[in-house]
Design a binder for these strands. Structure first.
Lengths: 228, 228
DNA sequence: CCTACCGATCGGTAGG
DNA sequence: CCTACCGATCGGTAGG
């Protein structure tokens, strides 16, 4: 039998003090929003999951980073796993939106000519780098590297978004294969290309040697041949 | 104050029974070796770390998989982190040995001509796939994907071996760049290439569609141009 | 290498 | 969203 008498948790650091010192807290635009604390939890959870890993991050870490007490994240999320799933879904939805925007913008800029397959791939690769290692890029690396920790019941929903994201690349790569600019089995080539790109989350550090534009150039040079 | 009275752990499953039923345990060649249990711990730890992740694997899981009681791994390893470091070091030493053997074998087979840079890369890539996703390939994926969990004091030793492994590739890629078979910044290209290869640990399943030979062909086709 | 255990921490919850 | 807490599990250890 286990008898455990727990002392009080450490007294709360006076997190609200700076706000209180300005008098009664005004409800500013983003504090009024009900979803605000939920969004903040997603943001700090994504950051901690990315930097420390899902298992190494406690729900207490997340609560503290969001300025809450230890039990409060469970008011917004059923479980730690549900929070992980929400991070991944939020990340994929943003990535899909960004990808669609980038393609639409590039198509608009190219008018009246249409984009070449090579130009399309350049846009997709450049946007992928933004999503992976650009600003506010914690969500997608969490999805890529913490997949194992996602409960099996939530995997299909995340996978559906992932498949939609990758499907956009397929006709582009097919066209490049048809023109002789991409050699070899297209399915395997696609998996290898995603690997090369996704792995940058492991080593790329912003403001270091290579810019994301330069990295995009190198990637295209590496993967593509000159048009036959 | 915490008072905790723990009941006995679950009674030991009679792990030695099959061996005992043959009478007094004979010390066979590998049971006699003092390092045998240590090697077995490394093997099962590598497998569990790979499939579940370091944080999600308890030292009790490891002990059970090796047929020991919960405290016994600490007779062989100072800490769970030391066990992780040992898995990574063992994996890198084996990978270096295999890489050297593969290059020596290829050079011997090619006599009296010397190997082309392209042939060298093929040997390196093929061997890398073996190390990553071939039989007994748990060690290197653990090194690649659990780096975060490695204590900072042990990182430099693992990194030294990793650098030695990658250094072998540098002159090969330089030669391919000089001949026009590899385009773009060589350092960035090398990082992208390792990414493409290392990511296969995420999706490749043996005995499935593509063999490692076919995957090697596709990789070379993807990365290399025809000789100018 | 096993037995028996410790102190710490974790995810999660009832009630307000 | 906080307070106060539970039951479980974890890494690790003393002594044999």
């Amino acid at each position: 039998m286990v008898l455990a008498m727990h002392v009080n948790e450490a007294p709360a650091p006076d997190l609200d003090a700076p706000r209180r010192s300005r008098g009664r807290p005004r409800k500013s635009a983003d504090e009024r929003d009900d979803g605000n604390r939920r969004q903040e939890l997603l943001r700090v959870a994504a950051h901690l999951f990315r930097t420390q890993g899902f298992d190494a991050t406690s729900t207490r870490d997340i609560a503290a980073a969001a300025g809450m007490r230890s039990g409060s994240p469970f008011y917004h999320f059923e479980s730690k796993e549900a929070l992980l799933a929400a991070v991944m879904l939020e990340g994929m939805e943003r990535a899909l939106q960004r990808q669609a925007d980038a393609m639409a913008q590039a198509a608009a800029d190219a008018q009246p000519q249409s984009l070449s397959a090579r130009d399309c791939l350049r846009v997709l690769v450049r946007n992928h780098f933004d999503v992976l290692v650009g600003p506010e890029s914690d969500f997608i690396p969490v999805m890529l590297y913490e997949w194992r920790s996602l409960s099996t019941s939530e995997r299909s929903a995340v996978k559906a978004l992932k498949d939609r994201y990758e499907t956009v690349w397929v006709p582009v790569l097919d066209a490049l294969h048809a023109s002789g600019e991409l050699s070899g089995d297209v399915r395997l080539a696609r998996l290898l290309i995603f690997g090369a790109l996704n792995w940058t989350a492991q080593w790329y550090r912003p403001n270091q040697r290579a810019s994301l534009d330069a990295l995009t150039d190198t990637a295209l040079q590496l993967f593509l041949k000159d048009k036959a």
